[in-house]
Amino acid sequence: MSDDSHQLLYLKNKVVNEQKHAKAIQESFQFLSEKLRKTMKENQIVRHRTKMRHDQNKEEMNFQEEFFKDQIKMIYKARKEKEKEKDFEKLHQFERNKVKQSIANTSSSAEYFQRYMSYER
């Protein structure tokens, strides 16, 4: 009987230890489950904020892209205008030179004519 009572006492202690262990595991499980829920919620918040920031950055980049495209268009337009002005100025200078040359030719013709007339007399 003493062996049986020792064995009974051993088994009771073993059951108590296993119950304590099961309770500790259950508490750990509850703690980790709660921590997991909090972490998942925080991750969801971070993902939401990240998505919002991404959308804001995308919108700002689109705005900047349009701004720079407009700036480039203005630069091209101003450059074309300058080229037109230079072309006009060259054409104008060419026409002035033609007129000067024509006047020079006319005056030399007039001088030639006067010389011719003075020899005839």
Rank of each mutant, 00 (worst) to 15 (best):
E89I: 11
E60T: 15
D87K: 14
D4W: 07
S102F: 09
N57L: 09
T50I: 05
F94Q: 15
Q30H: 04
H48N: 11
K73A: 11
D3L: 14
N17W: 03
E18G: 03
H6P: 03
L91K: 14
D70H: 14
E34D: 04
E60A: 15
K51M: 05
E85W: 02
K77P: 00
S5V: 07
E95N: 04
V99E: 12
E83F: 10
K51R: 09
K98W: 05
M40C: 06
K20A: 08
D70V: 12
K58I: 03
M40F: 07
E18I: 10
I72K: 12
D3K: 07
L32V: 02
Q93T: 08
N43I: 09
L36I: 11
K38Y: 01
H92E: 13
K41W: 01
N13L: 04
K73G: 03
K20W: 01
L11W: 02
K69E: 08
E95T: 02
I45F: 02
M1G: 12
I72V: 14
E85I: 13
E42M: 06
R47V: 08
D3E: 13
R53C: 05
M40P: 00
H21S: 12
K86R: 14
F94A: 13
K98C: 11
I75E: 04
F31W: 00
I25C: 02
S28R: 02
E85L: 12
M61P: 02
E59M: 05
K84S: 07
Q19V: 15
A22H: 11
